Computed example of a mutant assay.
Amino acid sequence: MNEALERHDLKILGTSSSVGGVFKDVKVTGECTFGGDVDCVKLAQTGEVAVEGNLRAQDIKITGECKVKGRVDAASLRGQGELTAGGGLRIEDIKLTGGIIVTGDCEAEQVQLTGIMEVSGLLNAEKLDLTLFGPCRADTVGGGNISIKRSRSGALLRPGKKMSFAARLIEGDQIELQHTQAQTVRGGSVVIGPSCEIETVEYRELLEVHKSSIVRNTVKM
């Protein structure tokens, strides 16, 4: 973040717009469109926020919908709602119920998401804990500990709705998957749970496959 400029708080109540800029704390209750980049210490929103440029913050807390045309960089993301990033995303710690949609790569240290995730490029996290509440996808998933499971409550609340994860490649140290389709899964310890369809699994230490899943090729590295 830009520390050379003096920062002031910005509070928006109702429906408004701003050219963007450098702020301390930004609080939006209602709807606000920022015409350029937003650089702040904290963004707290209840409602809808649109950023025409990039968004940089220490902490982001959303209740509602936040659409960023450019890139999102932050230390933490919390809340309930949907975050869209049109130019990639880098957030160290994510704990969200809702959705994350990224054009480009999504990088994080920890991701704990219950909902929907769509990443057109690489989804990279040291710890990824994804609970599916609908169709999710990424081109490539990489990380240390990767867990992808289906929400039991989601299956009851949304009967007939497809809750699955699709990727070309999933690679990590410890991998546990449910309701996942992938061309290649590569890891140290790999547990393929129910309702998965995997073309090839490459593993170093352990491989377990649920009886309801399909794994066409296995390779011990």
Score class of each variant (00 low, 15 high):
Gly193Trp: 12
Ile60Pro: 03
Ala44Arg: 12
Ile60Lys: 09
Asp139Lys: 15
Cys106Ile: 01
Gly154Lys: 04
Phe165Pro: 11
Gly121Ser: 06
Gly79Arg: 07
Ser213Thr: 07
Gly35His: 05
Gln58His: 08
Val141Glu: 00
Gly86Ala: 12
Val51Thr: 02
Val19Asn: 11
Thr103Val: 15
Val51Arg: 01
Gly142Trp: 01
Arg152Val: 13
Arg158Ile: 00
Ala44Asn: 09
Gly115Leu: 04
Asp93Ile: 05
Gly70Ile: 14
Ala125Phe: 12
Glu6Ser: 14
Val19Trp: 01
Thr63Asn: 14
Glu202Ser: 08
Gly144Met: 10
Gly160Trp: 08
Leu83Phe: 05
Glu118Ser: 12
Cys32His: 11
Arg168Tyr: 06
Gly115Ile: 07
Asn217Thr: 14
Asp39Ala: 04
Glu6Ile: 09
Ser151Gly: 03
Arg158Thr: 00
Phe34Ile: 08
Asp129Trp: 05
Gly86Gln: 10
Val141Gly: 02
Gln110Arg: 13
Asp139Ser: 06
Arg204Ile: 11
Leu122Met: 08
Ser147Lys: 13
Glu92Arg: 14
Ala108Ile: 04
Thr103Pro: 06
Leu128Arg: 01
Thr29Lys: 05
Lys24Cys: 02
Thr46Tyr: 13
Gly88Met: 07
Gly87Glu: 09
Gly14Glu: 08
Arg78Ser: 12
Arg71Ala: 07
Glu202Phe: 04
Thr184Ser: 01
Gln110Val: 09
Ile198Met: 05
Arg168Lys: 15
Arg186Met: 09
Pro135Asp: 11
Gly14Gln: 15
Glu82Ile: 11
Leu206Phe: 15
Phe23Val: 00
Ile100His: 02
Gly98Met: 08
Ser151Arg: 02
Lys211Met: 04
Val209Pro: 03
Thr15Ser: 14
Ile175Gly: 10
Val111Pro: 05
Ser189Ile: 13
Gly87Trp: 12
Gly172Thr: 05
Gln45Arg: 01
Gly70Asn: 10
Asp93Met: 12
Gly14Val: 13
Leu128Ile: 13
Leu206Val: 13
Asp93Glu: 11
Gly99Asn: 04
Gly160Phe: 08
Ala108Arg: 03
Gly144Trp: 12
Asn2Phe: 11
Gly35Tyr: 09
Thr97Met: 12
Gly104Cys: 10
Ala182Arg: 01
Ser120Phe: 06
Val41Arg: 10
Val102Phe: 10
Lys69Thr: 15
Ala57Asn: 06
Phe34Gln: 07
Val19Met: 12
Ser151Gln: 00
Gly86His: 11
Arg158Ser: 15
Thr218Ala: 06
Val191Met: 02
Gly47Asn: 10
Val191Arg: 10
His8Arg: 11
Val38Thr: 03
Leu113Arg: 00
Ser212Trp: 01
Glu176Trp: 06
Ala155Gln: 15
Thr97Gln: 11
Gly143Thr: 06
Cys32Gly: 03
Glu3Leu: 13
Ser76Arg: 10
Val22Pro: 00
Val219Thr: 09
Ile170Ala: 06
Thr15Phe: 04
Ile148Thr: 02
Pro159Phe: 09
Ile198Thr: 12
Gly121Gln: 03
Val28His: 07
Asn54Ile: 02
Glu92His: 11
Lys67Met: 08
Leu169Gln: 15
Val190Thr: 03
Gly121Leu: 06
Glu202Lys: 08
Met163Arg: 03
Gly30Asn: 13
